[in-house]
Amino acid sequence: MTLRLRADVSTADTDYGTVLLDGADGRYWQLNASASLTLRTLLDGGTVDEAVRRLTGTYAVGPDRAREDVERLLTRLRDARLVRP
């Protein structure tokens, strides 16, 4: 299932990663480069496995650690109600 941002969340790329603006409550969130790569992969329809492959293909990180980190980021995005359930 493709990850989707909530309708009132907009994104902006920066030199450091991505900023998410929650138009509903005015909060904005900064994602670093690896979080941006992960989010972009998932929003483009990629699976968690694909996000892990992108991380391990770009950064010096093993697949187990990368998977933990992808899952943790997904939890953070859901807890912040930035993505659709």
């Binding site: 005015g26 904005y28 969130w29 900064q30």
Partner: peptide
Amino acid sequence: DSRELQAYEAPEMFEAGSFAED
């Protein structure tokens, strides 16, 4: 296959501020 991997920083997301406050 000799592409250098970048140093890894775990994916991080933090609240950077409030549009309302700013």
